[in-house]
Amino acid sequence: MIPSAFDYAAPATVAEALGVLADAGDDVKLLAGGQSLIPVMKLRLADPAMVVDLGRIGELSGVRDDGDALLIGAMTTHHQIATDPLIAEHVPLLAKAAATVADPQVRHRGTFGGALVHADPAGDMPAPVLAADATFILAGPNGERRVAAADFFQGYFTTAVDDGEILTHVRVPKYAGWGAHYEKFTRVAQQWSIVAVAAMVRVDGGTIAEVRIGLTNMASTPLRATAVEQALVGAPLTRESIATASAHAAEGTDPASDLNGDAAYRRHLAEVLTKRAVIAAAGL
């Protein structure tokens, strides 16, 4: 399958890329890893007149220590996220989620930023990033602006990134001493999540001191399992208390029905997977 013809630019800096975007008009697409964009261009579901490749912008790639947080470049690949030592040390939840994305070849090309801006409800990176309370750094014609994760995901394949803007980095706080787990439910290999749950837990002397839970594919955007979080804080670290709290996992969700499962089945999965994710994150 051959995409429609397009003009191609491969700028070397973010500033240059913003200039190209500003000049290009409406019909332009940014190309990151291409693992979502190229398939839809081949199907001609997207046929931009111009493609701006971010792949030559070195400043967008890699993970940096930034004090109480990590600064992750948008062009950092899923493979890098899954294997980076700073991420393994400070936010292992991201590594665990990235390791479940697609397959090794797609993880070698697909990027952290691309997956977040693409914002597929079944995508695996948005819920962990929401649970981790990350901040998105966007570069645009009027300079830089920052968007909290809670405001970034706005709907089905829709984020706070405006036309003419580029996601450059994501700032993710460090979670020293927290346990983490990403529990993804699929039926076959190399599949998108039917439902998945991202959990981070801090245990203090036999009780759950803090907990953060993100749900994948339980609505058009990733969600926090707020009712479960509230029920768990201060609860004793036992399988029973986790099971009781996890029964609230589907509260406030709005899952889709599709060939992989109807909404009721997804609600059931959310409860079971939340229980498993929290138990694993707590190291029980």
């Binding site: 190229i38 070849q105 797609v106």
Partner: peptide, 8 residues
Amino acid sequence: SVKSCTMF
């Protein structure tokens, strides 16, 4: 490794 059908 990369999938060469999904790269320009």
